[in-house]
Every structure is written in C-alpha cells, then in structure tokens.
Design a protein around this nucleic acid. Structure first.
Lengths: 347, 347
DNA sequence: GTTAGCACTCATGTATAACGAGTGCTAAAT
DNA sequence: ATTTAGCACTCGTTATACATGAGTGCTAAC
C-alpha cells in the first residue's frame, strides 16, 4: 500500500514531531541524513500521505503533523525499538533492589520511577486482592464500645477497619466467634471469602452469637469494605510541562479525571495482557481525547492482575514508553513471583 | 489613625474585590448602598489609602486592589463575621454523622468537605501519633522467610510493615520476643516507645534472641518507620479555577509544593493553637507568595495536634473560610474527644 | 521520476489608532 | 472646610493594517 519512501518519510516526520512538537516542513525532512530526496519530492509524498489520512496540517500552508491514524500506523508498523539508556535501566534496577516487602510500596515506587523517567503521568492499578489468601483475622478491642478488625493476607497486605461494638453484642461472643472464623477461614482466598460469608460464616454466627444478624453486618463491613483496588498516581504535574497542554481548562478536566478513581480504574481494569496503546479519540473519556494511554499488565503470583499505565499527549515517545513498561512489568512480575513462591512451598 | 469613612471604603473595596477579582473603581464604590459619597470623594480617600499602603493600582489609571497590608488589616480589624448557610452547616454535619471510626477517614472526609464548600484546596495534617498508646503488637509469619509486623494503637490506628526474616534469626525466638514485648509495652505511648526502644527493648532482645543486634534493627524498622504524619489534600484542581492562576508555571510550582510532603508538613506542624492567617509574602514558600494559607488546629483526645489548612489566592474569602475552619475543627475535636474518653474510662 | 522555481497562504509580529474605564486635580458648590 | 462636578490625562484593551517568513502546491524543466 505505502511505498518504502512513504514509510520512511512518515517515520521521519513522526519521529521529528515527537521530539519537537512543531509541524514538520518538507525542507527540514530533506535535510535529514536518512533522506536523500529534495524538498519538492517530499512535498509530493507528504500531500499523498495527507490524502491517505496519515498526516494533517495545522493550517493551509503549515508543515505536517501526524494524525491519529498516523500515530496508530507508527505504533503498529513503523517505530523503531527503543534502546533504554544504561542510566535508566540502573534507576529501575535500584528501585527493586531496595527489597521492600509490601507490594503497595513496590507499586508506589514503580509509579514514581516511571513518571520520573518519562516525564509523563503514571497510573498504576494495584492488584486485585481476591485471589490472595487469608492469613489471619483478628479483632482487637480498643474500648468497651469499639474495636479494630484486622485482616492479613499471604501477600502481606493488611486491611483494617475500626468499628463501634453495638450494645447488644457481647464482646466475649465476638472473641470466640473470631477465633472460630480464624480457624475456619485460614487459607481461604478473598474471593471464596465473599461467598462463604453468606453461608458458613452466617451459620457460625447463628450458633455462637446472641445477636447474630447484627454481628454479621459488622463483620461483613469490616472484612469486605476496602477491597476495591487502589490507584497509585505519580507525576501529575508532568502533564503541565507538555506544550500541547497550555489550556488550563483542559489540564483541569484531565487532572480531575485522574483524581477520580471511579473514572480511571475501570478503564485500566479491563485491559487484556500485554501492551495496549490508546491514541486520542480511541480513549473512552472525553477529557483524554488529546492524550494517549499506554498500558501494560503485571501479575502477582499466578493470576492476579494489575495494570501499569502512562498518560501523555498523543505526541508521546511511544517506543521509549513501551520499552520502559516492558522492563518494569517484568521486574514487578519477577519480584512478586519470588514472594509468592516462597509462600507456596511453605503451605 | 484611619477615619470611619476610610475604614468603610477599605472594607467595601476589599469585599468587592474578593467577589469580583477586578480592580475596584471609585464610581462603583459610590454606587453601593452603604456608601453615600460621590466618586470624587472616594477618589481622594482611595489616594490616601494607597499612600498608606493599604491599596495599590495595577496601572496608573486603574481602579484599586488591596495590598497585602490591606488584606492583613482587613483580616485583623475589618471583616464582618460570616454566617454560614444552613446548607453548608448541614453538609458538614452529615460528614460527621457517618460515625466512621478511624481518624484517617474522618480527616479525609473533612478535607473533602472543606475543599468542596470553599472551592479552595484543603490540606490537613494528620495527628502526630506519638501521644497515642500502644494497644497491641504482633508479628504474623507469612512464610519461612517473611512476616508482617502490625502495631495497633488505642486510637484505632494500625501501622504495619512486611519484612523478610534474616536466616540467622530463629522464628521461634522472634515469637517469644514479640510476646514479651507485647506484655511489656502495652499501654506505652509511642513517644515513650521511641525511648524504651534503645533501653528496655534492646535488653529484652539480648536475653531472648540469638542474634539480637539484627533483630533489634528489624523490629525498630518495623515499628518506627511509618510515624511521619500523613497529609490529606483535597481539591487540588480548585486552584486552577481561580482567575489569578492562569499562568501554568505558577500552578505547576504550587501543585508540586503541595504534593511534596516535606515542604508543606513542617509549615503546618509548627502552627500554634487557633486560627492563623498567612497572606502572600508572609508565607515561607516561594511558590505560595501569591496565596494565602489559613490554618486551624484540632486535637485528638488531650494533646495530639493536627492542622487543617485552606490554600487559596490572597483574594480569599477570609471570613467564610475562618468560620468554616472553626466549625470543622470543633466537630473534629468533639468526635475525637468522644472516642478518647471512651478509651480513658476503660483503662 | 525528480527537482528547481515561483506564486500563494497564513501564522506571527509590530505599529497605529480608537475606545473607555478610571484617575488626579482644580474650581465651584455646600 | 468639605464635598462634588468637570475635565484633561493615562493606560490597558481591542481592532486594523502591514511586513515577514516558513511552508505549500503546482508547473515546467531536467
């Protein structure tokens, strides 16, 4: 469909524009080393590429900028694999050498290093915790009327919630119940926990607690409350250093989308394996129509998935970002797998 | 020093400017109901007020805007107490009716309601936890090489940290030690804990653990790591809806300051009791030289203090913000006191 | 097929003028 | 002695015109 020369020119234009953020003119292209044609030839080719929808002008006599179709083609067929600098690789390596032992911290650090190395905004969706297994369940009384429930999983995730003990529940009952729950539920995955909640746990409560309905509600609230996956964002202000974002309203709507978990989280959650690139209007969210979102998945142990994403202008350093995401998700997988396996052979 | 008429005019100008963000002209003032003088008279007074440093012009023939000295005078002597709307009071009330039982959530919700009601950015410094007392200390093994340490305080605060168990520490030793620690340290305030760490705890470890030095380091890290107070920020994007912030660089430097805890936290921490107002250059941070920061303190139980702050342009609705902060810190104090007292009579 | 040449387009920048909100000052009115 | 009306003046804002230059499309020559 496209000639070799057209491919070359398209690539050069997009590479140039990604660097400069300025419309690229025919003369500038013809001066590049890779290109041996005169500006007039380039102009003809550019006119064709524009007609095919890969390029566009900002006004009738301007140079060309890539269209979304152009970026799409670039990402799918054109871009050269990026060789990360040793410095960057070291920076990443260092992040994982700290041997932090909570995945929350690993994820947070990963988000930071990504935004630092790219100057874009990184968003990481923490792993779903349903597949992780219950290690310990505890209720620690704080006073005669309040207590804190603590749930620990095999991944080292701790989730807790304070609650006030209703007057019609006997604290002693509560304690026996928790002990029983602990025995009964040890090693159960949080997903199963959700199911067992309504059967086994409820039965157990009926037998051992006076006001079982109330107790059930409380225990349920304590255990299942916090299970929505966490978002880790880093480099929010990076958006503002991109020249395409000089309009405050645009920045604001983008930042508020990022701050609202319920908008971003579902988008990240439904991602399939591997690297995904959404360019401009391919994004669902109105506020992201001038942005590209590149996502990669990672896993904790066997199956649980989380998502790493980088958000930048459509004029993004796709190649570099994709390399980085690959390297980083690899590191995360390795780290998490190590922990998980330690876990497995203990069981 | 200032005549009644000058006071009136100054007040009217500042009130007007706080609403409109536009330089106020003499004719606009003379048309107000409270003012009975002609524009020429007002002009003369304004010239005097400017000479005294309370007002300034944006250019030689513009209306007047308040200077920082003008705002300072307004805040100290001029502004009328603000009557909060019933709607606003209800919104606040509702926040506290949810009877959440963790102060983290109360604080988070408070920050949200503040930014929502003011359209400024709210920053709350979580309470210092040193005065709170240790309720329970636990180490839960995750695998043969890793464990999670959990510390629960009487305020329902849970702090945890995973760590890998060094090969030269015997897990059994660890468990006995923790049990001993738990007995010995129950009810100790986290402040005392810091001291006892180096004396009692170290001794205890010497007696019961083989590799006590290493164990000490690990336990220390696990317990004392997370004690820096938390910042809760809400409404970051509100800054961008203020007309004085149309410069992206200004916004960016402000937002990055807010995101960096080590910059903001010390400023909030050193605040004395009551409401404090810092106007423009009175603020330490360069990035905040066009802003005002209004802070109030709250206490958890007896002594532990945290700080609530609102950050906006120097053209701030001082009166409303101060009323809101008073109401909100009152609610927080009351809520926390209730919890704390329940605690006390149990002890 | 490629390229030199040229007329044309349009964003950007600068100079100029008209407009109007608002001031300072003076002189008249209270 | 105050207060106010009147008026010249200032300066930011907006509109207009014009020059500049980067870049194009097209034609004709190579």
């Amino acid at each position: 469909m496209l000639t070799e020369r057209q491919l070359l020119i398209l690539q050069v234009i997009i590479d140039d524009f990604i660097q400069s953020a300025q419309p690229v003119g025919s003369r500038a292209i013809s001066k590049k080393d890779e290109v041996t044609y005169s500006s007039a030839t380039i102009r003809n080719e550019m006119a064709d590429l524009e007609e095919m929808g890969f390029l566009q002008k900002t006004h009738s006599s301007s140079g060309r900028i890539p269209s979304e179709k152009g970026y799409r083609f670039y990402v799918d067929h054109l871009m050269a694999p990026f060789r990360l600098s040793d410095r960057d690789l070291e920076t990443i390596q260092d992040t994982f050498n700290d041997h932090l032992m909570e995945y929350e911290k690993v994820v947070q650090k990963s988000a930071e290093v990504l935004s630092e190395l790219t100057n874009y905004t990184s968003i990481i969706l923490g792993p779903e915790v349903y597949e992780t297994r219950l290690k310990q369940l505890q209720i620690i009384p704080l006073s005669s009327h309040s207590a804190v429930a603590i749930l620990v999983t095999n991944t080292g995730h701790v989730q807790h919630r304070s609650f006030s003990i209703p007057v019609d529940i006997d604290p002693a009952d509560l304690e026996t119940t928790v002990n029983l729950l602990n025995e009964r539920l040890h090693g159960v995955s949080l997903l199963e926990l959700n199911e067992k909640m309504q059967t086994e746990v409820l039965d157990l409560l009926k037998k051992h607690t006076r006001n079982y309905k109330n107790a059930y509600e409380y225990i349920k609230a304590a255990l299942l409350d916090d299970q929505h996956a966490q978002l880790y964002v880093s480099g929010k202000t990076n958006i503002m250093s991109q020249p395409e974002f000089k309009d405050i309203d645009k920045i604001r709507s983008l930042l508020s989308v990022i701050e609202q978990e319920h908008q971003i989280a579902p988008i990240l959650r439904k991602n399939a394996d591997g690297i995904q690139v959404s360019i401009g209007r391919e994004n669902e969210l109105e506020a992201m129509r001038d942005c590209s979102l590149i996502t990669a998945t990672y896993s904790v142990g066997n199956e649980q998935m989380g998502t790493i994403a980088l958000l930048g202008p459509t004029r993004m350093e796709y190649s570099k970002v994709i390399s980085l995401l690959n390297v980083l998700s690899g590191h995360m997988n390795k780290t998490f797998r190590t922990w998980y396996e330690i876990d497995e052979y203990r069981k």
